[in-house]
Design a protein around this nucleic acid. Sequence first.
DNA 1: AATTAGCACTGAGGACCACGGAGTGCCAGG
DNA 2: CCTGGCACTCCGTGGTCCTCAGTGCTAATT
Lengths: 337, 337
Amino acid sequence: MLDERKLAVLRAVVEDFVNTNEPVGSRALADRHPLGVSSATIRNDMVALEEEGYIAQPHTSAGRVPTDKGYRLFVDRLSSVKPLSAAERRAIESFLGGAVDLDEIVARTVRLLAQLTRQVAIVQYPSLTRSSVQHVELVPLGGRRIMMVVITNTGRVEQRVIDLLGSVRESVVDDLRTMLNRAIAGKHLGDVPDAVDDLPAQVAPEDRPVAVAVLSVLLESLVERHEEKIVLAGTANLAAVDFAASLRDVLEALEENMVLIRLLGEAKDPSMLTVRIGAENFHEGLRSTSVVSADYGVGNQSLAKIGVVGPTRMDYPGTMGAVRAVARYVGQILAGQ
Amino acid sequence: MLDERKLAVLRAVVEDFVNTNEPVGSRALADRHPLGVSSATIRNDMVALEEEGYIAQPHTSAGRVPTDKGYRLFVDRLSSVKPLSAAERRAIESFLGGAVDLDEIVARTVRLLAQLTRQVAIVQYPSLTRSSVQHVELVPLGGRRIMMVVITNTGRVEQRVIDLLGSVRESVVDDLRTMLNRAIAGKHLGDVPDAVDDLPAQVAPEDRPVAVAVLSVLLESLVERHEEKIVLAGTANLAAVDFAASLRDVLEALEENMVLIRLLGEAKDPSMLTVRIGAENFHEGLRSTSVVSADYGVGNQSLAKIGVVGPTRMDYPGTMGAVRAVARYVGQILAGQ
DNA sequence: AATTAGCACTGAGGACCACGGAGTGCCAGG
DNA sequence: CCTGGCACTCCGTGGTCCTCAGTGCTAATT
């Protein structure tokens, strides 16, 4: 049904349209691509491609434009991820190398990705759920408050202030800290609730309310409160594009953290590049955008995702290459920390 | 030179232009505003206003549009800050009330301000430079690393990992922590360098490298590294506006943290509302935007700034009211923490 | 059977033009 | 000093025409 040449035509249509942003006609195609046939033949092929729904005409007597389905086929079968140039690799390395803490790694990553792809980049902070507790610190803040700081093995630091009903002696806090660390240091976060289950029973009855307050905040901040932090950069790159949907809708969608989380979360095969094209995205305002995303992590443990949002009419091979490369480097940097 | 009526005409021109986004003519003005004179008279006044540079015509036979200078006069002498409605006040209160930590206060504030003004909101984290040290915590991370956490009285938490050359005993860290807190707890940040000056001399010679390493990171992260965090929201609101400069330029400028910091930093009179109109902003891409900013703080101590960026053609009284109100509420919330 | 050349047809977009209307500047009279 | 009146200006709109890239189809060619 779709022989080699028709696929080649589709590929050419996609590539030309991405380059020029104008419907591409049979003559232009015959000129610019070595397909070895005349424009008339290409026209016939285009009719076939159109019948199958891979391309469409904006109006009669205009050239053809790829449909979402066409991009899908292009990504799945007609293109390969384009590796970065040596210069780009060096740029990544030197740019990410200078980061001092997790915040900065993430901040630099997102800017880098936006710059490489000239699109909007999204980076998710390493997930808490898959990491383990490195250390818990309790700091009496004088009076009836304690600050709790939890450090994870992925470099993430969560801090919360705990309001107590009454004041508390410093020695109690010290004991609690020791017990807590003995109980959960090194533990996977998912196991924390079980591990602290019997802690209140081990403290003197009069200190029990304090222990309970601390534990409830701990559990809330680590487990229940799934809140995933997400950072985004490169929105200025959207201004250059003209969307079917209004730019405003796209910007609005991108300002909603929940939308971003879902966008990245829809990736199917972890540890692989995922591409969601146009209407494949659940969100109304993102109908004319595509999302390229990838997992990053340390070793084979996936920690979170990064991605790029751009018009469906994007350079998929290049974008995929950039996303994959950056994901790998971030993993390396995190491992080295 | 500019009598009462001419000022009233200018005010009317600004208000109408803000509402309609179209050059306003003498007839329309005479209709919509109770100026008590005919359109011919208004025409004469407009000529005077134009000669003084307060308004301009996009082209002959078009209505008039306020210039930057016209907006300036409007803001300085012809308008007053518009207080928020009771409903808006309640919304602020309930929206900011639920925040649990500093990050969330800031995040909610910026979204709130963007929503109230329907423009881009900017919020700066409370400055480190004017706050004092509440507590310093040192946590041995096993091996040759220490995590340092500094908690300020403004609720901000700075953490850094310190890489050591050799391993260090836990007791040394304990001693260091105690000494450090004795030296700087409660101290104003500006006084920290002096306060820790002689600390290395007080530790045993073999532990001195550790002490020096810790102190250098402390000083770097608190004093030298001025890095002010800034958050921004509401960029989608820009899409509705049509700028003289391209939208892209504006978005680009807003993605540069340094630009934002300078934007807020240019406020003259602290603790007052500041308005910078059009070309008064130093940045090329922001020639057609205005910035309304205000300090917020606890008591009479200014901690940082918040602001709004929008087109020069903005509702100044309303925007100023929202900025001022939000600044005050944030101060209250921080004080209550 | 597949490819190609040729040709008539289509529709978007640009150039051109006419015109209505909002707005101006100016003048003479209240 | 204000106002009514008037001639003038120019923008924006809408209509018409034309060009041109591109199509679909058919008949000829390989």
